[in-house]
């Protein structure tokens, strides 16, 4: 079988990037913003009771695996997904698929990926990458956060695919099996937007969706009185890292989602979506401003009550603006 040359593109975020690269390989031009929007990737959650190395968990995205799954469903693309019990079986299955010339997406732990700079290598288990070939006992890797392709040794890849902790990848891999003759982009975009608004606005619990932004803002207010200065600055640092460090395209995916709305607006000839994109860009700027001030506060390590109050107010404003934004996005007529 003639093997099609795999083309790597760099993206901001791993899962939407992998989704985009896999589909591009099959000849479907799906940009990263479109993949992210159709897959309803944007979300917010703050879980004070789930501590990751002693710091409450905050996320700006939906759960791992959801973006690819939703994009496949909405574009009616056939996919095969599989989990494994043992690394041996998982690696064998991977080799088998590679022989047919198909690139394979998979979950991995960044801790075991030697090609990443050490600065990023914490125990984070939900990183997506593509393996598209094997040469001289090295796998060819297309990691969407990197500028270029790279390689990985089989032992390292096996470790990365079978990392422990939350969530356990268990060798999870996925590839495209079937491409429909016609793809209904307008419907998929509409479904993606509707789901995003639903997830942002409807959760009745304080820890999920838009509500959680106000909840976190309220928590930040009490950091100086409830936590030691060291803890308070660690907590703030973690929010900044989740928002900016780990491949979000800036402002905790707000810019990426704004890019999606713009592209959707152009595709469907809808000026209202383009305007909403502009609006989200300014909300994104507010998030950046929050991160900037949070970083200064984090560095100062002082229990300066006023600054924490101001930070809380900045974040609360982001949340309120976004609530209004998503409420109007939800009411867009189709």
């Amino acid at each position: 079988m003639e093997q099609k040359h795999f083309i790597h593109h760099q993206h901001a975020h791993c899962e939407s990037g992998v989704t985009s690269n896999l589909l591009m390989h099959e000849g479907i031009h799906l940009s990263e913003p479109l993949a992210f929007g159709i897959g309803a990737g944007i979300f917010f959650a703050h879980l004070p009771f789930v501590k990751v190395s002693g710091v409450p968990g905050t996320t700006f995205r939906t759960w791992p695996g959801a973006i690819f799954k939703r994009v496949a469903q909405r574009l009616n693309i056939g996919v095969h997904t599989e989990k494994f019990r043992s690394p041996q079986k998982a690696m064998l299955a991977l080799d088998k698929v590679l022989q047919t010339g198909k690139p394979v997406g998979m979950l991995s732990s960044v801790y075991f990926l030697p090609y990443l700079p050490e600065a990023f290598r914490f125990h984070f288990n939900a990183h997506n990458l593509i393996i598209y070939g094997k040469q001289d006992n090295q796998y060819s890797v297309s990691d969407p956060v990197l500028e270029n392709q790279t390689h990985i040794a089989p032992e390292d890849l096996a470790k990365a695919r079978f990392a422990k902790g939350m969530p356990e990848p268990r060798g999870f891999m996925y590839y495209i099996t079937n491409i429909p003759s016609k793809i209904d982009f307008p419907k998929a975009i509409q479904q993606g937007i509707k789901q995003t608004c639903f997830f942002m606005l409807s959760p009745p619990l304080p820890w999920f969706g838009n509500r959680a932004i106000g909840f976190l803002a309220e928590k930040i207010k009490y950091y100086p009185s409830k936590l030691t200065p060291r803890k308070a600055s660690l907590y703030l640092g973690n929010i900044i890292r989740m928002q900016e460090e780990i491949g979000t395209g800036g402002a905790g995916f707000r810019y990426l989602y704004a890019a999606f709305l713009q592209e959707a607006g152009e595709m469907l000839h809808r000026d209202d979506l383009k305007l909403m994109s502009q609006e989200l860009t300014t909300i994104g700027d507010d998030w950046r401003n929050f991160a900037y001030h949070a970083a200064r506060q984090m560095k100062a390590r002082q229990s300066d009550l006023v600054s924490f109050d101001e930070l809380s107010a900045l974040l609360k404003q982001c949340g309120m603006k976004e609530r209004d934004f998503f409420q109007r996005l939800q009411k867009v007529k189709w």
Partner: peptide, 16 residues
């Protein structure tokens, strides 16, 4: 393409 941002860098450094 961006090599990094001060705010993000400080958070990374602090975590380490």
């Amino acid at each position: 393409s961006s090599v990094g941002w001060e705010a993000e860098n400080e958070a990374t450094k602090q975590a380490w």
